[in-house]
């Protein structure tokens, strides 16, 4: 059970949040131009890294804002938290 520093609310218990999987997967602007393989790449393929991973999180039982978080999945250390649209930090 982590403590997550919501960029809008501050430190809160993990139970208030839900994880939305890998971050920085942008929905293609022109899906119709894509081949099946390219679309499948967007739709299905996720890295699921053991180590430092960039993730989307939602403060579901709080401000309901989505934000990004850099977490080491091997030890749950949270390296950074930043708002949607902000540049990912270099870890």
């Amino acid at each position: 059970m982590f403590v997550i520093n919501c960029p809008y609310c501050g430190e809160r218990d993990q139970s208030e949040f839900s994880c939305g999987g890998e971050a920085h997967i942008v929905r293609p602007k022109q899906p119709t131009e894509l081949s099946d393989d390219e679309w499948a790449e967007y739709l299905f393929m996720r890295k699921n890294i053991k180590g430092v991973q960039f993730e989307r999180w939602n403060h579901a039982h709080g401000c309901r804002k989505w934000f990004n978080m850099v977490r080491d999945t091997s030890n749950d250390k949270i390296h950074a938290v930043y708002k949607m649209g902000e540049k990912p930090p270099v870890i």
């Binding site: 942008v26 929905r27 949607m84």
Partner: peptide, 13 residues
């Protein structure tokens, strides 16, 4: 509601 909020906040802000 969660899904709509997700798209609004992350894909179409």
């Amino acid at each position: 509601l969660s899904k709509l909020e997700d798209y609004l906040q992350t894909e179409w802000p």
